[in-house]
Design a protein around this nucleic acid. Structure first.
Length: 425
RNA sequence: GGAGGGGUGCCGGAGUGGUUGAACGGGACGGUCUCGAAAACCGUUGUGCGUGAAAGCGUACCGAGGGUUCGAAUCCCUCCCCCUCCGCCA
């Protein structure tokens, strides 16, 4: 969320940030509303001062057994005006918050401008896509032929956009998740967290999914929401906290299921398990000082890339353009893995620096050393990486002519030494 | 689900409806003392918003939201959370 004081000081910069996001200028409207709100607040506070002083005087008078009825009557008369002033102040404040909480974060200066993903810029790539001397297949063809991937069973249970994995494939999926978690906790310095998968409105507001993107989420009959990513519980761990500077950076990771309604993606990626209502993901979250967040983003995307390096998967790393970055992000790197079956790179990780955008929404602050005041932290999140999509990548990149799948070296310790997944399951 | 008990500052813990942003204790920080340390003593120790160049001033906040009152941490209502016991349960 934008800082209203910053908008007051630099309305042109605010409008310029909106413009990069493809939005019309709003500073004039916002500042007019802000002025009215502050006037309402001042008016209210003036009355409160008056009331407090009068109440004190009444207390004094009563203690001395003097008559205070005149003053009391005066204050009683003030009451309606105060109620109205309170209501006006509250109303204007809510209006302003409604506007601000629906505006996306400002992109960092180095983020390339562009209308959509075609303006994303490739930073680097790793490994040449493997050349097959046979016709390579897509993951669902491989999985179904092996009898280990079952979309019909999933449809019976849950409908479209779900999958059932069996046998060695289910184990490979589990192995991938364990491997990633071990890598991040033992080599990358992240602390493992097992968070709740159901969260309150406030948590989703904090990370920016609410109020604007409710339709992308699943909500329970009890009013809790299924998390669309572990970014939500992990980042909100610092909500309403004031953290000591020495404790930063905070690095946490979690393996969780993620639930997404995929409301706006009808017809896209309908085959296979690339886009599901439920998938597992290992998430990375860092909480840093404003000075450190830029470096932390580089470090984080490095951690995500490292997963793919260890697995021997070809990928490329992209800087997203202003037209493609998410609501809360100031800058985002996508890591795209090569999928031979699709003959394309597909997103497998997305790492974002959210600056103080989320911190401001969730009041997450830290106290700089030797400083009495507080500052908002910076928050970053990234997939490290999406487990389901990574399984697809392993299947397609490690497929063999007979339809079997070689187990990448790094995963064999998690598979009891198994080297190949073949038709016998 | 049933029955009780609670939610106050960094922590513990007070608080007859009136100068309580909050006693007291602990912790932390600064200082005195000391060759140094401990002890002792003195002092400091919340967050947001508004206003101001700043110092400051004002205002709100004692789980959340309403209400009563000239005035609410204190009274009333609703909700949330935590704890104990019983039931159920992985």
């Amino acid at each position: 969320m934008f800082d209203i004081r910053w908008i007051r000081e630099e309305p042109e910069a605010f409008d310029a940030a909106l413009k990069r996001r493809g939005l019309d200028p709003l500073s004039a409207d916002v500042l007019a509303l802000d002025t009215r709100r502050r006037e309402a607040q001042t008016a209210l506070q003036t009355m409160q001062t008056l009331r407090n002083e009068a109440s004190k005087a009444i207390g004094d008078a009563k203690r001395k057994d003097e008559d205070a009825s005149e003053l009391m009557a005066e204050m009683a008369a003030l009451k309606d005006k105060m109620t109205a002033a309170e209501e006006a102040e509250r109303q204007l404040g809510a209006e302003l918050l409604d506007i601000l909480s629906c505006l996306p974060n400002a992109p960092l200066p180095e983020v390339p401008d562009g209308a959509d993903e075609t303006a994303n810029v490739c930073l680097r790539s790793h490994l040449e896509p493997r050349q097959f001397d046979f016709a390579s297949k897509e993951h669902y063809e491989l999985g179904e032929a092996l009898g280990l991937l079952d979309f019909e069973a999933a449809a019976k249970l849950s409908g479209a956009r779900f999958a059932v994995m069996r046998g060695k494939l289910a184990r490979l999926h589990r192995a991938l998740a364990q491997f990633m978690l071990d890598l991040h906790t033992t080599e990358h310095g992240y602390t493992e967290v097992a968070p709740p998968f159901l969260v309150r409105d406030e948590a989703l507001y904090g990370t920016g999914q609410l109020p604007k993107f409710a339709e992308d989420l699943f909500r329970t009959t009890h009013g809790l929401w299924l998390i669309p990513t572990a970014e939500v519980p992990l980042t909100n761990l610092v909500a309403d906290e004031i953290i000591a500077a020495e404790a930063l950076p905070l690095r946490v990771t979690a393996l969780t299921p993620c639930f997404r309604s995929e409301a706006g993606s009808a017809g896209r990626d309908t085959r296979g398990m690339l886009r599901q209502h439920q998938f597992e993901k290992v998430e990375l979250v860092s909480i840093t000082t404003p000075e450190e967040s830029a470096d932390e983003l580089e470090r984080m995307v490095g951690c995500a890339e490292n997963v793919l390096k260890r697995l021997g998967l070809p990928y490329r790393t992209m800087v997203l353009s202003t037209g493609d970055i998410g609501f809360a992000a100031a800058k985002t790197y996508d890591v795209e893995v090569w999928l031979p079956g699709q003959d394309a790179y597909r997103e497998i990780s997305s790492c974002s620096n959210c600056g103080d955008f989320q911190a401001r929404r969730m009041r997450a602050r830290y106290r700089p050393e030797g400083d009495k005041s507080t500052r908002f932290v910076h928050s970053l999140n990234g997939s490290g990486v999406a487990v389901g999509r990574c399984l697809i990548a392993v299947m397609e990149n490690y497929q063999q002519a007979d339809g079997s799948i070689e187990v990448p070296e790094a995963l064999r310790p998690y598979m009891a030494g198994l080297e190949v997944i073949a038709a016998d399951g």
